[in-house]
């Protein structure tokens, strides 16, 4: 593996809330244009890991490199620059409720990147079109369905030209019939070569796109490997047992 191929490197990330460790010694590297999928039971540390990567939750220990540069979270300026390059998609969307879809996508271009209004509007419209919502630009979050909200939030993240996109269970808060439209967008992004780390319970969907699964339990990455390795027929991995249970509960393996 060529070193310049590596876009993100995470080493020894740990976090405890009080005495309770919620993330322990998370370490991995990620190559450009790949999708890494975090699976495992709720409370296993997936969300904490994602939020520690962009320091929304400051980790107690550990280091992060983006594109070969180590992040210094103590410098506010550096942290802001880093976060602009790492997009984040939340489970519950977190669209800005007082701004319409266009303004949601445009606000950081104006206020963080300092773009001119016309250029920012053009870029925001292009991103909304990319997620199929050009016609909804004037609508406010409360006027959009869950799936549309999540697509706006993806457009908002993409507008910043992130080097890595972190997705924290992007479909978990959605009604079943709305999951598909969001997964379609994510699939398009994966095929367009956007580097992503996604926590999800959509196992078979992500198995077809991911280059690596990380199985997290009790704050640790307990298994990692390609979907084929971890989910193969004669494999007896912890991951496979968990995924089998998920599809059993869902009654379908084929989301």
């Amino acid at each position: 593996m060529n070193d310049s191929d590596i876009i993100l490197k995470v080493e020894g990330l740990s976090k405890a809330f009080g005495n309770k460790p919620v993330l322990q010694d998370a370490t991995f590297t990620q190559r450009r244009g790949t999708l890494k999928v975090l699976v495992g039971p709720s409370g296993g540390g997936k969300s904490t890991l994602l939020q520690c990567i962009n320091y929304l939750i400051p980790p107690d220990q550990g280091r992060v490199w983006l594109d070969g540069r180590q992040i210094n979270p103590k410098s506010r300026r550096e942290l802001s620059a880093y976060r602009q390059e790492v997009g984040m998609i939340f489970q519950d969307f977190n669209l800005f409720d007082h701004l319409n879809a266009l303004e949601n996508v445009r606000i950081a271009l104006l206020k963080v990147k300092g773009m001119a209004k016309a250029a920012a509007t053009e870029r925001a419209m292009a991103e909304l079109a990319r997620v199929g919502l050009a016609g909804k630009a004037d609508l406010y979050p409360a006027q959009l369905s869950g799936g549309q909200k999540q697509r706006v939030s993806i457009a908002r993240a993409l507008a910043m030209d992130p080097k890595v996109l972190l997705l924290d269970e992007p479909t978990s808060a959605l009604d079943p019939e709305l999951i598909g439209e969001v997964l379609t967008v994510i699939k398009d992004l994966a095929q367009a070569g956007i580097t992503m780390i996604m926590a999800t319970h959509q196992i078979s969907f992500s198995a077809s796109l991911a280059d690596e699964f990380l199985f997290m339990e009790k704050g640790r990455i307990v298994e990692h490997g390609s979907p084929a390795e971890l989910l193969g027929k004669d494999c007896c991995s912890r991951t496979q047992a968990f995924c089998a249970k998920l599809s059993e509960l869902a009654g379908d393996a084929g989301q």
Partner: peptide, 10 residues
């Protein structure tokens, strides 16, 4: 989440 999303955008 409103503040979190703002921070995540830099």
């Amino acid at each position: 989440g409103q503040f979190k999303a703002a921070r995540a955008l830099g």
